[in-house]
């Protein structure tokens, strides 16, 4: 459905329905674990369901008019069957319990991957769909496989509250949609936007100690959670069918690079943070030690390991 049609449709929604998410209970973040109790599951027919409803009424009128009891019986059967399917959609959600959320690191402007761990109560939730900001993702759960992975937009740096999630199911026939909202009381850290532009980082005296270029990498290794997507060797990964990450030569650490807040006079605040972030990423990718100096005088490094990398990015993300 395109945006205009959606707006038109929304205009026709009963006021109560469109106002539902405004109810305080639905807005207030809740501590994990969050259980989708039956009294917070809503259910309405989908457009296909409304269409079927019209068809059923037509069949009913036809059967009654022609005094055709066989058709009437089957119309009743189809009607009750479709109505009963509403309960299946509802059951697909009922009692669903979100136990933990794990967020992968994400830079501002990218999409953040969230791993939602649901309680394994021995039931399959085959029709589960999770929607954050209009984008729906099917996440069927099985006993023994109750993790769902979704992407949410990360559009501002810093500690962000998790967005409200809409868990829905249209099982089994797509004629009714049951849904419930979950707003976990969790915050995730979004790293600043990576500045693509900008001058090369301020460097030490020796011009030979530049960041090595992209073609001087030492080799490839398997992807590990936390690796920046920008370091993935896509072509090689595609060939192997598995994610590979470029590893750069750490054999000859030169003198640390110095990324100084104050070395960028005149650059506005956010672009400045972005540029520093970009440098940190580049240096980490090149396995070159670096020092980060922030406006409040905090200094990180020199170092070049993952902990240092994440400490720097977190500090940049948390800047006021």
């Amino acid at each position: 459905m395109d945006a205009a049609a959606r707006r038109r449709w929304h205009g026709k929604l009963p006021g109560a329905v469109s106002r539902l998410p405004m109810w305080p209970r639905l807005r207030t973040p809740e501590r994990l674990p969050v259980r989708l109790h039956r009294n917070r599951i809503y259910i309405l027919p989908t457009r296909a369901g409304l269409g079927f409803g019209v068809l059923l009424v037509a069949m009913l009128l036809g059967a009654l008019n022609y005094q055709n009891n066989a058709a009437l019986l089957l119309t009743c059967l189809l009607g009750t069957t479709l109505a009963a399917s509403m309960l299946i959609a509802w059951r697909d959600l009922q009692g669903l319990t979100l136990q933990a959320v794990h967020a992968d690191h994400a830079f501002c402007g990218e999409r953040m991957t969230l791993h939602l761990a649901f309680e394994d109560d021995g039931r399959a939730r085959r029709g589960l769909r999770i929607a954050v900001d209009e984008r729906q993702q099917a996440c069927p759960l099985q006993p023994g496989a109750t993790q769902a992975t979704i992407n949410v937009p990360a559009d501002r740096r810093g500690w962000r509250a998790l967005p409200r999630m809409c868990l829905s199911s249209s099982l089994p026939f797509g004629l009714f949609r049951a849904w419930g909202w979950i707003t976990p009381d969790l915050r995730v850290l979004v790293y600043p936007r990576v500045g693509e532009d900008g001058a090369p980082p301020s460097r030490n005296d020796d011009p030979r100690e530049r960041l090595p270029g992209g073609d001087e990498f030492a080799g490839l290794r398997d992807y590990r959670q936390g690796d920046a997507l920008r370091h993935v060797a896509w072509k090689a990964s595609a060939r192997r069918g598995d994610l590979l990450v470029r590893e750069f030569d750490r054999a000859a650490p030169g003198s640390p690079l110095r990324f100084d807040w104050f070395a960028l006079p005149g650059v506005p605040r956010e672009p400045r943070i972005s540029r520093l972030t970009g440098w940190v990423c580049d240096a980490y990718a090149a396995a070159h030690p670096w020092i980060l100096v922030l406006e409040d005088g905090r200094t990180f490094g020199p170092a070049m390991d993952a902990a240092h990398y994440h400490r720097c990015l977190a500090a940049l993300a948390e800047l006021p």
């Binding site: 469109s18 539902l20 259910i43 457009r47 829905s168 849904w179």
Partner: peptide, 13 residues
């Protein structure tokens, strides 16, 4: 997503 009526991109799949 604000209500059950809302059609989804699913339908165009």
């Amino acid at each position: 997503m604000d209500g059950g009526f809302v059609g989804t991109a699913q339908e165009a799949i």
